[in-house]
Amino acid sequence: MFYPNSPQTSPQLTQIPYGQQYAMMQRQIQQPYHPFATTEPQARLYPYHYQGPIQQEQGGFITQQSTAASPQYVQMRVTPVDQSIMSGYPNQTANGSSSSSFNYNIHPQQQQQQQQQQQQLRHHAMPVGSVPLQDDRYRKQLIVNYLAPDVTSTDLHELFSRFGELDGARIIYDKQTNMSKGYGFVYFCHAEDAKEAVERMSGYEFHGKWLKVGYSTNPLNIVPSNSSPYVHAGSRGAAG
């Protein structure tokens, strides 16, 4: 039997160049792979992502010199942007860049009308829970959420009447099932009393439920100042 490094198959040491006398086997001759043993700084910083320098080929596509990437890492192929796409944008300079302001050559009167329309939209648009300043009635009506099913309009009136005089209180019921929808409205005579009720009743436990109280901004629920107070009856038909 002959071994790869046996004296019968191995040459004389004098015939082997210096430095390879003890590297006779194939696994010894093959050098191990060192990912950080390279002179390129990109490979030292990113050993798993770097795959060699990027070269520009004919046709405008950018390719990489090395083989496919590892399945664990996804390499994105980048193509140059066609400058003709950006030619339609206004205020574009000769080098292809555009300024931040756009001039669509709008007539001054049209621009003024658009600004007025935007101001009107901001004036009428009102986020949930906010209180408008032009109508004091919005500051007097509250919406009470997360009410228990057994709470009546009379219970709601008695709960909030300790903060001040009320114009009314009612629970909203479903017309088909005649069941409470879980929320109601309270109408105060003074805005200061309503503000105190919002601050003190939010998070209050009532009939096993934690109440959420806020201003009601729905104009359909506003009680006119010259109208008669609501009837605080315990029956659902009268309260709904």
Score class of each variant (00 low, 15 high):
P41M: 13
G52L: 14
A68Q: 11
S180E: 01
A238S: 15
Q116W: 14
G168L: 03
Y204T: 05
F2E: 03
Y46G: 03
I54G: 09
V186A: 06
S180K: 02
Q83H: 11
V186K: 00
M179P: 02
Q114W: 14
A69W: 14
W210R: 04
L166N: 05
S227Y: 13
N91M: 13
Q115W: 15
Q114I: 13
P90Y: 12
Y50S: 05
Y50R: 02
S202Q: 13
G60P: 10
E199C: 07
P80D: 13
Q65D: 11
S180M: 13
H34T: 08
A197N: 00
P229G: 10
T67V: 11
R77H: 11
N103V: 10
M76F: 14
P32Y: 02
I143E: 00
S99I: 13
T14Y: 06
F160G: 02
S130F: 11
D174H: 10
G240R: 11
Q92N: 08
Y48I: 11
I16W: 15
P108D: 05
Q28A: 10
G60A: 09
P35L: 14
V144M: 09
Q75G: 06
W210H: 04
R44F: 15
R137N: 05
N95I: 08
P132S: 12
G168P: 04
N105C: 11
A125I: 13
Q110A: 12
F206D: 01
F61Y: 13
Q118V: 10
D167N: 03
A94K: 04
N178Y: 04
Q51Y: 14
Q92M: 15
A197Q: 03
G203N: 02
Y73H: 05
N5E: 10
Y50D: 08
M24W: 12
R162N: 12
S97R: 10
E57Y: 15
P47E: 11
P149N: 14
V198F: 10
G182R: 07
G182K: 02
T39K: 01
Y89R: 07
S100I: 15
Q20D: 04
F163L: 04
G60V: 14
P53W: 15
K175G: 04
A239C: 01
Q110H: 11
S225W: 13
F36S: 03
K195G: 11
R77M: 15
H107C: 06
T177I: 09
K181Q: 02
M86D: 05
M24I: 14
Q92Y: 11
P7N: 13
K209F: 01
S70F: 15
E40R: 03
Q117P: 09
V131I: 11
P80S: 07
S161A: 10
D136H: 06
R170E: 00
N105F: 13
P127G: 06
P219V: 01
P7I: 14
G96C: 10
L121T: 07
R137M: 02
D174V: 01
